[in-house]
Amino acid sequence: MEKTVTVGLEHGLHANAASAFVHEAGQYKADVYLKKGNSTINAKSILGLMSIVVQKGDDVLLTAEGADEEAAIEGLSRFLEGK
């Protein structure tokens, strides 16, 4: 399952938001990935997330595969949208 999301977080995924995002992603059993441009990272990896720059207004692709993939996509989409 996948969904394109426009980042609505005021400061994008800076260090604090990135840490909170990785923590949120870790709550799901599904394998979750975030793609921006040509880079795809494991959404549960803080090092992976910090290796790409995600700013407000960027479009990213969330992909999840596993038992709770729908919940993962919905929860992480809301997080990225700043809701």
Rank of each mutant, 00 (worst) to 15 (best):
M1Y: 14
E2N: 13
E2S: 13
K3C: 02
K3G: 02
K3V: 01
T4Y: 07
T4A: 09
V5A: 02
T6Y: 09
G8T: 06
G8V: 08
L9Y: 04
L9K: 02
L9R: 03
E10V: 04
E10D: 10
E10I: 02
H11L: 11
G12R: 09
G12C: 07
G12H: 04
L13N: 00
L13G: 00
L13V: 00
H14P: 03
H14D: 08
A15K: 05
A15L: 11
N16M: 07
N16K: 13
A17K: 10
A17S: 08
A17L: 11
A17G: 00
A18M: 10
S19V: 01
A20M: 14
A20N: 11
F21S: 04
V22G: 06
H23F: 06
H23R: 15
E24V: 01
A25S: 12
A25T: 07
G26A: 14
G26N: 13
G26P: 00
Q27Y: 13
Q27K: 15
Y28K: 12
Y28H: 15
Y28R: 12
D31C: 08
D31A: 15
V32P: 00
V32A: 13
Y33F: 12
L34G: 04
L34W: 09
K35M: 07
K35V: 02
K36M: 03
K36A: 02
G37Y: 10
G37W: 10
N38F: 11
N38L: 11
S39N: 12
T40G: 09
I41F: 13
I41Q: 14
I41T: 07
N42E: 07
N42S: 10
A43W: 04
K44T: 05
K44F: 11
S45T: 11
I46G: 05
L47T: 03
L47K: 10
G48Q: 10
M50T: 00
S51G: 07
S51V: 04
I52D: 03
I52L: 13
I52N: 05
V53S: 14
V54N: 07
V54Q: 09
Q55K: 15
Q55V: 01
K56H: 06
K56F: 02
G57W: 12
G57F: 10
G57A: 11
G57Y: 09
D58W: 11
D58V: 11
V60T: 04
V60I: 09
V60P: 01
L62T: 01
L62W: 05
L62C: 03
T63K: 15
T63S: 15
T63Y: 15
A64G: 03
A64E: 03
A64M: 05
G66V: 03
A67C: 01
D68M: 12
D68S: 10
D68G: 08
D68W: 13
E69N: 07
E69A: 15
E69K: 12
E70A: 12
E70I: 04
A71L: 13
A71G: 04
A71Y: 04
A71P: 00
A72R: 08
I73V: 13
E74L: 15
E74R: 14
L76C: 03
L76G: 02
L76A: 05
S77Y: 03
S77P: 01
S77N: 08
R78W: 01
F79Q: 04
L80T: 03
L80C: 07
E81V: 10
G82S: 10
K83Q: 12
K83E: 08
